[in-house]
């Protein structure tokens, strides 16, 4: 499910955005080894301060599993100001009808191979359909996307091959970065939908997002409320041995405190 988050609605999706920045840190710093700025586990750069649009994918469990960031090429954008080495000294494209897509990634640790609902290819396709349909509505005709060779292969194999590249691929961290051109056309969107068998409207309503995120909250709560193993037995014993309500409350406070320290694992 795709959420389009811009400066006008971001206050409704604060926690989704935080998870997106965390996903970006895991992908761009940990996996790809890019020199990005990560604080508190979140990757946020100057371009996030320029009020870009984020295309975010959340899965059935409410987790953020894919994202992409869009900026106008008429104003400041990464190919003009950061990734210019890719362009071999040439000035970048500048057009009101071309958008730039950067920080495109999917959660390869959580998602599987193949073409199922929880696969890398499925989420990639959903993000792409979301971005292209959103761009089309804005009168935008093409996108230039900064991607790595792995993503490039995924695109080629999923009915969504770039029609050309700008400049030449350049080393960036552990991988190379390249600038791919893609048209925001009906034909391309249809080709991606055909390959991925995504026939539904990919855009999520506010209510759908709220429900999935609430489900996720509940699951996390449950995970951390039920200590397992030795700790679990210890707390059970403490609860049984408690003499009054005050002691029970104290044990519960301890459980919560420990759970907070070990998120998800207890």
């Amino acid at each position: 499910m795709i959420i389009i988050i811009d400066e006008l609605n971001r206050h409704k999706y604060t926690s989704v955005l935080e998870d997106m920045y965390r996903l970006r840190a895991r992908v761009f710093q940990d996996r790809l080894g890019w020199e990005v700025n990560v604080q508190d586990g979140k990757e946020i750069d100057d371009f996030d301060g320029l009020q870009p649009t984020h295309v975010v994918c959340i899965d059935d469990e409410g987790d953020v599993v894919g994202c992409m960031r869009l900026l106008q090429t008429t104003g400041p954008h990464m190919l003009a100001d950061v990734f210019y080495s890719i362009l071999d000294g040439e000035p970048p494209l500048r057009s009101a009808q071309v958008w730039e897509a950067t920080r495109f990634c999917v959660d390869t640790a959580k998602l599987s191979g193949g073409k199922t609902r929880n696969s890398i290819s499925y989420v990639t396709s959903e993000v792409m359909i979301g971005a292209f349909e959103y761009a089309q509505k804005a009168g935008v005709l093409d996108a230039v996307a900064v991607i790595d060779p792995v993503m490039n292969r995924v695109l080629k194999r999923s009915g969504n091959a770039p029609y050309d590249y700008l400049g030449t691929a350049k080393p960036m961290g552990k991988v190379t970065a390249m600038a791919a051109l893609m048209d925001c056309s009906d034909e391309r969107i249809e080709s991606i939908r055909e390959f991925s068998d995504i026939r539904h409207d990919v855009f999520a309503s506010e209510e759908e997002v709220r429900q999935r995120r609430a489900k996720r909250e509940l699951r996390k709560q449950k995970d951390s409320d039920q200590p397992t193993g030795d700790l679990h037995d210890y707390f059970e014993q403490q609860l049984r041995d408690a003499n009054d309500a005050e002691e029970v409350a104290a044990v519960k406070r301890l459980i919560q405190a420990v759970a907070d320290q070990l998120p998800g694992d207890l």
């Binding site: 494209l93 500048r94 057009s95 071309v98 093409d142 029609y163 050309d164």
Partner: peptide, 17 residues
């Protein structure tokens, strides 16, 4: 030896510049 679309995207950008 480039696609028709590549010609178009550069032409559009050139026009606007």
């Amino acid at each position: 030896s480039i696609s028709h679309r590549t010609v178009e995207v550069h032409l559009r950008s050139g026009r606007e510049k």
